[in-house]
Simulated scan of single mutants.
Amino acid sequence: MKKLLIHTTGVISWSYLDPKTGQTMGIEVDSLPPSEILNVENAIGVDLNKPIKLNFEKEPIEYEIRVWDNENNVNATYKNLDDVKEKGKMIYEILATWNEGRVSYVVALDIQ
C-alpha cells in the first residue's frame, strides 16, 4: 500500500481540558490555501481501482474530501475517496472532525 505525505493546511481549531486549571482551552491556526502550499505538478500517482485507506491516529467522527483547483476554488466535495470522479493532477484537502475540533490536511494526487 502506498504511503502519502500529507500536509496540514487551512484553519485548524482544537480544544482541550487543561488538567491544571480545569478550564477548556482553545487553539486556532490559519494558513495559506492548498494551492499555495503544494505544487500540483509534483502530484503522487494514485489508482482508485486499488484500495486506499486514510489512516488517522484517532479515527475522526467524520471527514470530507475537497478537490481544489489552482485558482483556490473548491471544485467538488466527497465523503469518501471511492466517490471521487476527477482524473488527473489535483489538490485534495481532507477536512477531519473530532469532538475536540477540526483539522485540514492537503495532498497533491494524480488520479488514474
Rank of each mutant, 00 (worst) to 15 (best):
D82F: 06
D18T: 08
N80T: 14
I111T: 06
H7I: 01
R66H: 10
I52V: 15
I6L: 07
E28T: 15
L38Y: 03
Q23F: 15
W98Y: 07
Q112L: 07
I94Y: 00
K58S: 09
E62V: 11
T21E: 06
L48G: 05
K87V: 09
G26L: 09
I61K: 11
G45L: 06
L17K: 15
K50H: 10
N99G: 05
H7E: 13
L109D: 00
L95Q: 01
K79C: 08
N73S: 08
I91Y: 04
N70T: 14
N70Q: 15
E28D: 06
L17Q: 14
I65E: 01
G45F: 09
T24E: 14
T77A: 10
N73I: 05
F56S: 06
A96S: 10
Y92I: 03
W68S: 00
M90G: 00
V29G: 00
Y63S: 01
N72G: 06
Q23K: 15
E62R: 13
I44Y: 11
A96D: 04
H7C: 08
K53G: 07
I44N: 05
G26D: 09
K58E: 13
I91P: 02
Y16M: 04
A108E: 03
D82R: 13
V84K: 02
G88R: 14
T21K: 10
L38P: 02
V40D: 03
P19K: 13
W98N: 03
E36N: 12
E71L: 09
L81G: 00
P60D: 04
R66E: 11
I27Q: 08
N75E: 15
Y16D: 09
L54Q: 03
I91G: 02
T24N: 12
D110C: 05
P34R: 00
D83E: 15
V40P: 05
A96H: 01
W68D: 01
Y78R: 02
E57F: 11
T9D: 10
A108M: 06
Q112I: 08
V29C: 05
P34K: 02
E28W: 07
E28Y: 10
I65S: 01
E41A: 12
V40N: 07
G10Y: 04
V84M: 08
I61W: 00
L32K: 14
S35T: 09
P60F: 02
V67I: 15
M25V: 13
E36P: 00
I91C: 03
K79D: 12
